[in-house]
């Protein structure tokens, strides 16, 4: 175990290996490791954010569900109200219609009666003339007595 030129050889080998490591081993490995570190950090960050987003979305969904329920209840209520109103209106309309029909019928009736009365009147005048003719045995001058007879018919 003497100190000799082996020392120099070892030294040179050492330097060569260190330079090799510095050029071809360390930088690529470290860059890969740092890239991965960054990616993992980003991933965890994103997961955190996604968790928060999920929480928010859940809250929002619950909120929306609640609102929707409220709205549905409102709509049902409104619909019920509306239905009641429609029924009410229909009833009213029916009533009106029936009233109208009734009054129309009444008017018709009255008109018929009036017409019948008119006819009757006209016929009464004629009958009365015939009766009077028969009673008087003479003919009555239609034109001279017409006014009186018409007055008589109108009084009937």
């Amino acid at each position: 175990m003497n100190i000799n030129a082996t020392l120099i050889g070892q030294s040179i080998a050492f330097i060569v290996f260190v330079l090799f490591c510095m050029k071809y081993v360390w930088p690529p490995l470290l860059s890969v490791m740092q890239a991965r570190e960054k990616r993992i950090a980003e991933g965890l960050d994103m997961a955190d954010r996604a968790d928060k987003d999920l929480e928010l979305a859940k809250q929002k969904a619950a909120q929306q569900l609640k609102e929707a329920k409220e709205q549905a209840a409102l709509i049902v209520e409104q619909a019920n109200k509306r239905a009641g109103k429609i029924v009410e209106e229909a009833k009213l309309q029916a009533q009106e219609e029936s009233d109208r029909l009734k009054s129309a019928a009444q008017a018709d009736l009255e008109r018929e009666v009036a017409r019948a009365r008119e006819q009757l009147r006209a016929q009464v005048a004629a009958l009365a003339l015939v009766g009077a003719e028969k009673i008087l045995g003479t003919s009555i001058d239609l034109s001279s007595h017409n006014a009186m007879l018409n007055q008589l018919a109108a009084e009937l």
């Binding site: 100190i3 000799n4 030129a5 082996t6 080998a13 060569v16 290996f17 090799f20 490591c21 081993v25």
Partner: peptide, 21 residues
Amino acid sequence: GFWTFHLDTLGWSVVMGIVFC
């Protein structure tokens, strides 16, 4: 003297260095 080389030392250390590299 000084200008002696230990072939086994040099050889194995270089082999080991190459294995590492």
